[in-house]
Design a protein around this nucleic acid. Structure first.
Lengths: 211, 211
DNA sequence: TTGTCAATTGTCAGCGGCTGTCATTAGTGT
DNA sequence: ACACTAATGACAGCCGCTGACAATTGACAA
């Protein structure tokens, strides 16, 4: 296993993430000072900025973990199947393991209340979106690889991922701001949105609701 | 017409936007300080922050103008037509008038080089994305209104706009980072991406390229 | 024209995020 | 036990941004 030094670093990092999340949820992101976070963990401010490039980065560190897991799961999937469906089923597959990974750092309910704060804090929402774009790049590359396409000449992977991600973000946003904060509610929101991707793009919206 | 006071304010604001754009393009966004911008226009730093809530806001002030025009154009469009097509044709319709509006503040080539900087500067890219989300909200509301739907119960407008916006952003990004910086090249990039929205979501990608 | 009022601007002080630098502390391998 | 290196702390300082108050400047009526 790893040495004491490494373990200690991991513990410090996790403590910072946890303390930050607790403070953010308790008193809001902007109202929380880096000094307060480091006071809670009893390290210097300088140490904080050695672990995280910015205050935003702590707030989004768990989202980064989630993205990481999703990309890994996608790249491990066997070839075959329509690209849209692969994106969908990879998602269905990973909910649980991702939840477990998060709980190793902070309790799941805390993470979910943090989602709300992220969505409603402009600076955080912006940073999150930027990360989402980086994620899109990786997903695009992965889809292209699976289909044996060159993303430079064939833009279908990029377009698909852009559309899919856009819809996913809308679903998460809807969930975090108006749904109940459970995993299954999030799952449901995402699924119902993705299912409407096709109908929404069709030329005939008819009269019937699809909400 | 308006009084001298108002005209003076407008001039100050435009000068700040223009000086900022020139400096950003010349030496980069992060490398430019607000003090340098205000020095170029000869106003106090405090005045700058009375016109713009943040340094980011000057950098994105022209994008805000563009969004404004697009929403207006959309809301002025007569009813009828498939929602996707309405979004597309509104775009085609507005290229020119938007270009003219921009040129009243800064030369078009300067604006376009600024696009590049925006895309390649993380902080700006993030802020731009946040504005894009706000724009999506307005477009969603507008589409729902046109179709006589309640966005609370029918999520098709939201899903459509999310997908459309995602693809548009991907197109602009592609253009600004790899295309030539002309209006027509931007138009072309957007059109070719949007055209592939349908095919990209289809279950059969076949073998033929569509790039 | 002059005087009054309100809007705009400048000055100054100060907070909070973030970084460079250098001394200090604390694991690691011999 | 001893050197070596990685991690931390302490300190100074830049920059974005804000509140408060005084000074300036356009608007409008007497």
């Amino acid at each position: 296993m790893t040495g004491l030094r490494e373990r200690k670093k991991q513990r410090t990092r996790d403590s910072l993430v946890r303390a930050a999340h607790e403070l953010f949820v308790e008193k809001g992101y902007e109202e929380t000072t880096v000094d307060e976070i480091v006071a809670a963990v009893d390290v210097s401010q300088r140490t904080f900025f050695r672990y995280f490039a910015s205050k935003e980065e702590v707030a989004l560190s768990l989202q980064a973990l989630v993205s990481e897991r999703y990309v890994e799961a996608l790249s491990r999937r066997p070839p075959g199947g329509a690209p849209v469906q692969v994106l969908r089923s990879t998602l269905e597959e990973t909910w649980e393991s991702i939840g477990e990974a998060i709980e190793e750092v902070v309790p799941l309910p805390l993470y979910m209340r943090m989602w709300q704060i992220t969505e409603s804090t402009p600076a955080l929402a912006a940073a999150q979106l930027r990360h989402a774009v980086e994620l899109e790049e990786r997903l695009t590359a992965e889809i292209a690889r699976r289909e044996g396409l060159d993303p430079g000449t064939d833009s279908r992977p990029r377009v698909l991922v852009a559309a899919f991600s856009g819809v996913m973000r809308a679903a998460f946003r809807h969930w975090s701001l108006r749904g109940d904060l459970t995993v299954s509610a999030a799952q449901q929101a995402v699924e119902s949105y993705v299912e409407q991707l096709g109908p929404a793009l069709s030329d005939d919206w008819g009269g019937a609701s699809s909400g």
